[in-house]
Design a protein around this nucleic acid. Sequence first.
DNA 1: ATGTCC
Length: 391
Amino acid sequence: MTVKDSATVTMFASPASWIESDAVAQCHQVAALEGMIHVAGMPDLHPGKGAPIGAAMASSVLYPLLVGSDIGCGIAVFPIRLGRAAPEKLARRFPDLDRALDPERDADDPAWDVARDDIPAGHEEGLGTVGRGNHFVELARVATIEDPGHASRLGLSAGDLVLVVHSGSRGLGERILRAHTEVHGAGPAADPVAYLAAHDDAVRWGSLNRRLIAARVAHALGAEPTEAVVDQCHNLVEIHDGVYLHRKGAAPGDGRDVLVAGTRGTASYLVAAHAGAAANHSVAHGAGRKMSRADALRRGRAKHTVEQLRRTPVGSVVVCGDRQLLFEEAPTAYKRIEQVIADLVGHDLATPVATTIPLVTYKTPDLSDRQIRHNRESRQNRESRRERGRR
DNA sequence: ATGTCC
């Protein structure tokens, strides 16, 4: 009989941080995988589909499922210069980011200036779209400067405006993971070199997408697009010290600057990351979900009105025509970002540089009265069809 | 997370 040793699991969270036991259990399941060396759980750890979210997992074997389907997902920060305007007014000027930029039909769109001629993997579908789930584009104000020297090297001062873009590789990453799981399920990549080549395309595509999104929004708000001061991917695999380092909802922590996203109703933290080997060179990527989407929807409907959720306690405006998503992504569905940051600082993984406060958080276009009428009519038609079917 | 499972 052989007894396989499990990899080490280290949690970078204080007892004050509530970590769901299901997520810790997932870390131990991952630790038992063949070839696994070390699992580091970040303070925003929460259960994911097949793998925990908020974890960095080092292994001698490459497991595509530990990166997930949104390969290349990340958060970028773009400075933006705007005249004075109220959040409500700016919110109405955001472009429709569910509508993809078509390289032919939209050939004249100035956002392409950031793309030059290279579209990774030639994947044109969904370019310039933000996606769903926890993805967003946010116009935010730099609120506090925690490290003046570092902030000034990034060109950031209190009061400056930035666009924070959280998005990934849309259909491309999903296609890459599906091609793997259809043959190998949760097993390792049979051809790591081939997987990594496709994966690297998705990572580049995700970064390009964030730049395109920021450029679209900047133009729509009457500003010039800028280079990102921060752009870190939190779903990827890197070869680090000769092993595969899988990050799933964990940002690179080896000397890079990372925006750790709060919620649409709380601050976000730009941090200088300096996580070592024990943390698998990684830091948290956000506040982390406290409630499942189903719980957030059920409890949110009892607790909040749509109007409350569209205007947050910090006075920012949420653009989200999808009612369900509005509840699922409510600030109360997330952990306290201050505790996540305190845990990163307490474990010496990162140092705060600046905080940002949201002005406008864009998820998906608001519905026009015409669309609301149309949706209601088609729902009634569906229901009456179903009713007729029963008779 | 995802041109998504009715």
